[in-house]
């Protein structure tokens, strides 16, 4: 079994373990920490599968932007409700599990990069230039549609997130049962 295969299976194990921990945690912040580890593990799997652009975007957009949105929302809930217990969030038990799993992933990446050679389990790694060429030639209509979808999402999120209106939908006009 080659080094890349070992790294792939280890990253898959980390992804499955951390995903199980995500859906079984009771605290949202603990679940989000394990979600970040799960996304990083999937990014390592992308890298070993020969998709470096997808791996980078997984880290930047999923773990970097989408999870931060979740953290912001959790922070807003805590500001509205009960006071946060700072000591409980920064204790060792909170970050030990995600830290160990992240250290495993870091060791895998260092191992693969130190070994050199081709970073792909498939026939060949697909470089970002080919992805860009394909994206803006064959799939250019999809790019336009994705841009419209994102614009609609921004407008919708702005509309739903504004505090001024009393109600944004007729579902919310009824008194609570």
């Amino acid at each position: 079994m080659s080094l890349l295969a070992v790294v792939f299976y280890a990253a898959a194990a980390v992804a499955v373990i951390s995903t199980v921990l995500v859906i079984t945690r009771s605290s949202p912040i603990h679940a989000l920490l394990y979600l970040i580890v799960s996304l990083l593990a999937v990014a390592v799997m992308f890298f070993t599968l020969g998709a470096p652009l997808a791996a980078a975007l997984e880290v930047i957009i999923y773990a970097g932007a989408i999870v931060v949105l979740f953290v912001f929302v959790v922070m807003m809930f805590n500001l509205q409700g009960e006071r946060t217990k700072r000591s409980a969030w920064t204790s060792v038990r909170t970050w030990a599990g995600p830290g160990i799993l992240s250290a495993v992933l870091l060791a895998e990446v260092v191992l693969v990069l130190a070994a050199g050679g081709s970073h792909a389990l498939g026939p060949r790694p697909v470089p970002p230039a080919e992805v860009g060429l394909s994206l803006f030639s064959t799939y250019v209509l999809g790019v336009e549609l994705a841009a419209m979808l994102l614009l609609a999402a921004v407008v919708g999120a702005f509309h739903l997130g504004s505090r001024k209106r009393a109600s944004h939908h007729r579902l919310f006009e009824e008194p609570t049962p």
Partner: peptide, 20 residues
Amino acid sequence: PDGQVVFLFILAMAAAEVSV
């Protein structure tokens, strides 16, 4: 490269879904 292209579309869709 088609798999990565579709992944980019999935990424855009997930970002729109999570914001709304």
